[in-house]
């Protein structure tokens, strides 16, 4: 599954499913290693998603964002600030 198709919800749901399967102890060595590998990828994805929204609030004003997206300089009044 590519990152574009993957959402945090599907990733966490799949992770829970994997942990549940592993917790049953019914998975053989091959399956366990495959699940652990898949799970590691999902954990990395989830951790990255969480990191992206826990870096500290970045506040912008609409005008500033529009200006930035258009590649123009922002006015001092519209400058972003991190809290």
């Amino acid at each position: 599954m590519s990152d574009a198709e993957r959402s945090y919800e599907t990733a966490t749901a799949r992770l829970e499913e994997i942990i549940r399967r592993l917790d049953t102890g019914e998975a053989g060595l091959r399956e366990t290693l495959d699940l652990v590998k898949e799970g590691r990828g999902l954990v990395e994805y989830c951790a990255a998603e969480l990191d992206a929204v826990s870096q500290g609030l970045e506040e912008l004003q609409l005008g500033a964002l529009v200006a930035r997206l258009e590649g123009t300089t922002t006015s001092p009044a519209d400058e972003e600030h991190r809290s």
Binding site: A52, V53, S54, L57, E58, E59, L60, Q61, L62
Partner: peptide, 15 residues
């Protein structure tokens, strides 16, 4: 509300 969630993303105010 955003603080309560521990959210620290980008917030665009449109006053």
């Amino acid at each position: 509300g955003l603080h309560r969630r521990g959210w620290g993303g980008r917030l665009v105010w449109a006053f």
